[in-house]
């Protein structure tokens, strides 16, 4: 591997190490109880992950997140595609979505808690709402952009309207849909933690805020690192899957990007 290639590979690692060094130095310099050192926070990570109770909490979080995300994707993609191909359906749903879009989903939690309690259903529903909008929006945009002539070509081959939606609009809009899903995935993580902050009963957010209440600042920072790492891993896995599914649409960079 060339020197330039090595640098490129090492860059993210160096950036992380750099951040931790700055943290460590700043923490040592400030000497504040609520700002533990990087090393202290990292030491707390194995304690959390080794604790059965904590693991159950984190897994419960992930389960809710997966359910909310999955349900949102299953509902939002067909809805977005239909909106993109039918002016009537778009005219009906667009105003509704425009109203819901800017409302922070966490702001709806008190009402949902009132009606559905503080259990899994409430939290999953909030995650569902958070994920739905970007997925609907991107599916809608993707479906709208599908070339009419492509659909005509399919129609000439004898595809019915439903077949065209599933076998032409869906794959043609897939790159755009997956962009929405990727945004949705990050939003799922955010709404997951937020929902657990508000309805504190179980989950990763619950561990974090309990630790904060008890002044276990190393645990607080350790949880932030764990949640952050979860987000980075999920996003990386999703990106791998996405790139595989829409390889046909990716521009190819076989040209060297620099002159080095």
């Amino acid at each position: 591997m060339s020197a330039a290639g090595m640098t490129k590979r090492a860059a993210p690692v160096l950036a992380c190490i750099g951040l931790l060094v700055v943290w460590q130095v700043a923490s040592l310099a400030l000497k504040n109880d609520s700002f533990p050192t990087a090393i202290g926070a990292m030491r707390a990570i194995p304690d959390i992950l080794g604790d059965r109770e904590s693991l159950i909490n984190i897994l419960a979080s992930l389960r809710r997140m997966a359910m909310g995300f999955g349900a949102a994707v299953l509902v939002s993609i067909p809805l977005g595609l239909l909106m993109g191909r039918s002016a009537a359906i778009a005219a009906f749903f667009n105003p509704l979505l425009m109203v819901i879009y800017p409302v922070p989903k966490a702001a709806l939690m008190p009402i949902i808690m009132l009606w559905l309690g503080v259990g899994d259903i409430t939290k999953t529903l909030v995650i569902f709402l958070g994920v739905s909008l970007p997925v609907i929006y991107h599916s809608f945009e993707g479906a709208k952009a599908v070339e009419e002539k492509m659909l005509w070509s399919g129609a000439a081959m004898g595809l019915s309207p439903v077949q065209r939606l599933v076998r032409i609009v869906l794959p043609a809009a897939l790159p755009e849909i997956l962009t929405g899903c990727r945004t949705g995935l990050v939003l799922a993580l955010i709404t997951m933690i937020t929902s657990e902050m508000i309805a504190r009963q179980s989950g990763a957010g619950n561990i974090l805020f309990n630790a904060l209440d008890m002044g276990q600042y190393e645990t607080v920072f350790a949880m932030i690192i764990i949640v952050g790492a979860m987000g980075i891993c999920l996003d990386a896995i999703f990106e791998k899957v996405r790139a595989r599914l829409v390889r046909w649409s990716e521009p190819q960079f076989d040209m060297p990007l620099s002159f080095s």
């Binding site: 002539k149 492509m150 005509w152 070509s153 794959p171 043609a172 829409v246 649409s249």
Partner: peptide, 13 residues
């Protein structure tokens, strides 16, 4: 009746 369009309209996937 089989169309061939100026825009090709191939299925890119």
């Amino acid at each position: 009746r089989g169309p061939v369009f100026q825009e090709f309209a191939l299925f890119p996937w």
